[in-house]
Design a protein around this nucleic acid. Structure first.
Lengths: 250, 250
DNA sequence: TAGTGGTCTAGACCACTAG
DNA sequence: TAGTGGTCTAGACCACTAG
């Protein structure tokens, strides 16, 4: 266990102090500066160089492989991957998504009210249909141009006085975390094709029959309980969904 | 290392003989029979019961967590997850996708020809634009109803005499593996909204302006080299895309 | 404070690649 | 056949939960 000049993991307050995560970031930087299909040092070499066990190296490499930065050939070696268009899909908020695309997100609150859940939303939030939910309708903008219509439903019992909050136009995820301590860790999504008509087209300032993407999402907390249902309608001419998929098993 | 009555891993020819995979399947069966939020035995107990190390147990549980079958609470325990609508997105062929949805896939070959790649396709396949590609256009059916229009481009140099194959209407993935030994392990996908018009609407037997999903895919082999570019146009009224996303880091 | 999952190690052996 | 990644173990200690 050497204390290299470059810096050892350390235990930053609030950060991620794990060795494999620290090593992952180190290796990511190295990989970023290499041509595609360049061999990396062997796992045993990396382990020795950084004073960690081979398992820790493998864990860091696993993360890089998942992210599509490297690929491994059994019996041969580890190599830098080709250029990537897309990333592995992860759970992001609209704000984060737009920022990652280099756009400036903003929001206009269209409606904020309490109402009975009803059967459909109630079932998805795992609460009785008579129970109250908070409904937020927002027009989402990117670089001040309409991008998406978003309607979110939350069980009122879990977010009391949400309607009294004054930053409902900002990131809801951030608010849920800071004001209520919730951590959304997983979401189930259903994406369908759609066509903009009537009110939707008008709000998004798009011509009638503009293609669109409808994203239905159920957000779950770290205890696997539904916390949020969101219906998003994206302008198809300004938005696409990019992701990497892998072959499982085999 | 006990040889339990239930059966130990064993080394089946061609199968997946790893202990963690064997244990994963075992645990999956157990989990499937339990109510949501039921605690599982502790990792140490599972290890003892199955005569494996705790790391092997953790690896099996990691897979179940990724698949959304369980969730873990640090310091507390491991629990069965709530009901799932969707699965983690993995790379599948049309045939596999439809079969998983309980539909019977079939196919009608619309065109099969060799042609120059051109700049756009050439760049995506990482070959010069003058080089030849095989182009396959297929109408994909599910339960004998038009579902999707699919056009695939492959570098002819890597799939010689593909056009002479007589089962081009069947699964292309299976053919690429059996006839050429290729393994597609990763794909990058871009999903956009679309509207069916003209020829496309006619071929899919859908009314004009039917919403649709366009999926652009670059398939990569196990050496991370592009092997296939496919453009798919799905009828939006019959098809949706379902998947689970997770919050990364944190 | 007892018990749980999370991280990490040193070492062994296997499966596969590529000369 | 030497070298690589893939699997697995036994054991240690830490961070966190929940009574």
């Amino acid at each position: 266990m050497s204390t290299t000049a470059g810096g050892t993991p350390g235990r930053q307050a609030g950060g991620t102090p794990s060795k494999h995560e620290w090593l992952r970031q180190r290796l990511q930087e190295v990989v970023a500066g290499l041509e595609p299909h360049t061999p990396l040092p062997t796992e045993r070499e990396i382990a020795t160089q950084h004073g960690v066990s081979r398992q820790t190296v493998r864990r860091a490499l696993d993360a890089l492989e998942d992210a599509g930065s490297i690929y491994r050939v059994h019996g041969s070696g580890t190599y830098t991957a080709g250029p990537m268009i897309s990333k592995t899909l992860t759970m992001t908020s609209f704000s984060e998504d737009m920022t990652a695309r280099g756009l400036v997100p903003s929001s206009r609150l269209l409606a904020a009210e309490a109402m009975p859940a009803g059967d459909r939303i109630g079932e998805q939030l795992a609460i009785p249909g008579e129970e109250s939910v908070v409904r937020l309708a927002r027009l989402r903008l990117a670089d001040n141009r309409p991008m998406c219509l978003e309607t979110t439903y939350l069980p009122e019992a879990r977010v009391p006085e949400l309607l009294e909050q004054d930053d409902l136009e900002r990131s809801l995820y951030a608010l849920l975390h800071s004001a209520y301590g919730f951590r959304l860790t997983r979401a189930e999504q259903i994406v369908t094709g759609a066509v903009l008509t009537g009110t939707e087209a008008a709000l998004l300032r798009a011509p009638e029959n503009t293609p669109a993407l409808r994203v239905h999402r159920i957000g779950l907390d770290d205890r696997d309980c539904p916390l949020e249902v969101t219906e998003s309608l994206y302008r198809g001419d300004r938005y696409d969904l990019r992701f990497t998929v892998r072959r499982e098993g085999e």
